[in-house]
Nucleic acid binder design. Structure first.
Lengths: 152, 152
DNA sequence: TATTGTTATACTCTATAACTATA
DNA sequence: TATAGTTATAGAGTATAACAATA
């Protein structure tokens, strides 16, 4: 049967969103199998990669608003996957780092995530994958740049 | 400054989601300027394109669960953008169609959406855009196919 | 004054279970 | 029994305003 949404399908924005929402469902299952969610996985990834990171830096790097980070950090912390160490130089801030348990958990989840990631791009050539990744980066930059055009 | 999220950035799934979430913010502004949301826009688009459509068909075409469609249809209907006509052959169902006002509204919104769509792909060649769209379609198909691998 | 983390709040999208009225 | 639309509900992600403690 021919798809009905002919008009929408020619819009990059629609295609992007549609593809992403379908993909997210699959990743969600993988994350859940490791006691993680999309946001806790990405935060854990960055904390593992950058020990000593502060929440404000984490939020900026992952484009997550600070208030929304609180429950994510709480989740990771209550599972014993990360540590919050008081900063010696700034008593307002915490230095985040992964525990041994957190590093192990991330490693296991990451392996499964990589496997799924490979499955969703199955059938794409290396060249096509490369164009895809660069195109997505360019679109992200374009969309960000448009932000400053907004009211105010 | 070098991005911190080196690990994540190599994952297609992360790139996809990140690009989409940033882009969605821009589209949201355009939709809102026309009294629409992402979902009401896509539903209105399909109703304009396919008069007589029923909600179940709409939901299937746009991958929206039936219960979630109710408030979307309500929104469009209360704005006078669509009509719900009782089906002559099935008293459970409605035939959805756009009103003159709805067609006008869609046309106006669509023009702005297309403009934004062109802006977010600015800098991509025709070839790159083509590869992008095909890659996104392939990923969507791959992700959908993986669904049947789930438990149960 | 500005920043760090936090609380409170709200909106959107998405998902499932269960209901009703038809078919 | 199955389907069309609905109600109720819940879980995520995301956004803003305002606060206390600290810089």
């Amino acid at each position: 049967m021919k798809p009905l949404d002919t008009t929408l399908r020619s819009l990059t924005g629609y295609r992007l969103q549609r593809t992403t929402s379908v993909s997210i469902l699959r990743f969600k299952e993988v994350f859940a199998a490791h006691g993680l969610r999309r946001t806790t996985f990405s935060c854990l990834s960055l904390i593992v990669e950058t020990p000593g990171l502060r929440q404000s830096q984490l939020g900026e790097a992952l484009a997550i608003e600070r208030p929304n980070l609180v429950s994510v950090i709480e989740d990771l912390h209550s599972q014993g996957l990360i540590q919050k160490k008081a900063s010696p130089t700034d008593r307002r801030a915490y230095e985040l780092s992964a525990t041994t348990k957190g590093m192990k958990r991330f490693k296991e989840a990451y392996a499964d995530v990589c496997e799924l990631d490979a499955e969703i791009v199955d059938g794409l050539s290396d060249d096509e994958s490369d164009v895809l990744m660069r195109a997505l980066q360019k679109i992200e930059r374009n969309a960000k740049a448009l932000k400053s055009k907004g009211p105010g």
